[in-house]
Simulated scan of single mutants.
Amino acid sequence: MNSVYDFQVKMTNGKQKSLQDYKGHPLIIVNTASKCGFAPQFGGLQELYSKYQDQGLVILGFPSDQFNNQEYDNIDETTQFCQINYGVTFPIFAKVDVNGEHEDALFTYLKQQQKGVLSSKIKWNFTKFLVDREGKVVKRYSPTVVPSKIEKDLIPLL
């Protein structure tokens, strides 16, 4: 695999979507959880998306239930929560595992490209990966980094 564009991901309706569809766009890929204390970051992510989507930015949200079961069982509840509470309009995909035996291949790749502190393992919800227009993972952000702090790294990629 040479870029994030080589992957397919599962949409909330169960169908596969090729990340080729986002070729040429800078991306922020993030594992999310609706019931997490970091859930207000949905609002910050949406602000970035609204501000820069006309310049090509796409944010891809991947709900995960791996950290203290902080995601709804039903994906429709997840998407409704995001839309109602934070006005999310960026794509939200089907739930994924981001670590372990059943982890999604995209997240395996993301972690290989940008390792975290001490290990490549994702330690919590709202770990964010910044991807350039060529599909290269250029930076990884810990859950405590609020979306507005990504803006300075994002602007040169637009």
Rank of each mutant, 00 (worst) to 15 (best):
83 Q>S: 13
72 Y>L: 02
40 P>W: 01
75 I>W: 10
103 E>D: 12
90 F>W: 12
77 E>I: 00
91 P>S: 13
46 Q>Y: 00
55 Q>E: 14
43 G>P: 01
114 Q>P: 01
65 D>C: 09
21 D>H: 15
92 I>Q: 08
79 T>L: 12
113 Q>T: 00
25 H>V: 10
76 D>F: 01
125 N>Q: 07
114 Q>S: 04
126 F>P: 07
87 G>T: 09
79 T>S: 12
33 A>T: 11
115 K>C: 02
35 K>S: 05
99 N>W: 03
53 Q>K: 15
30 V>E: 10
104 D>C: 08
18 S>N: 14
47 E>Y: 01
108 T>E: 12
118 L>C: 03
53 Q>L: 02
29 I>H: 10
112 Q>I: 01
105 A>N: 14
48 L>S: 07
84 I>C: 00
70 Q>D: 05
19 L>N: 08
87 G>S: 07
42 F>G: 06
47 E>T: 09
104 D>H: 13
115 K>H: 09
116 G>V: 00
38 F>T: 11
46 Q>M: 04
58 V>G: 02
44 G>F: 03
48 L>E: 07
118 L>E: 03
59 I>W: 13
122 I>D: 04
65 D>L: 07
116 G>H: 03
52 Y>C: 08
44 G>V: 03
123 K>C: 00
106 L>R: 08
27 L>F: 12
40 P>A: 07
40 P>N: 09
89 T>M: 12
107 F>N: 01
63 P>S: 06
117 V>W: 15
39 A>L: 05
127 T>C: 13
81 F>G: 08
125 N>S: 07
107 F>C: 02
41 Q>H: 10
44 G>H: 08
24 G>M: 06
122 I>W: 05
68 N>D: 14
69 N>Q: 15
67 F>V: 06
38 F>R: 13
42 F>W: 11
87 G>R: 07
57 L>Q: 09
43 G>D: 14
91 P>R: 08
103 E>W: 02
101 E>M: 03
17 K>H: 06
109 Y>R: 09
93 F>M: 15
96 V>D: 10
117 V>E: 08
87 G>H: 08
18 S>P: 12
80 Q>S: 15
122 I>G: 04
56 G>I: 05
57 L>G: 04
80 Q>W: 02
67 F>Q: 11
91 P>C: 00
33 A>W: 12
59 I>C: 13
128 K>W: 07
77 E>R: 11
32 T>P: 09
46 Q>G: 03
81 F>D: 13
27 L>Q: 10
126 F>W: 05
44 G>N: 05
76 D>M: 14
60 L>S: 12
68 N>W: 07
119 S>E: 07
54 D>R: 10
42 F>D: 07
21 D>S: 14
93 F>S: 11
71 E>L: 10
117 V>G: 04
104 D>L: 00
76 D>H: 08
44 G>L: 04
34 S>D: 04
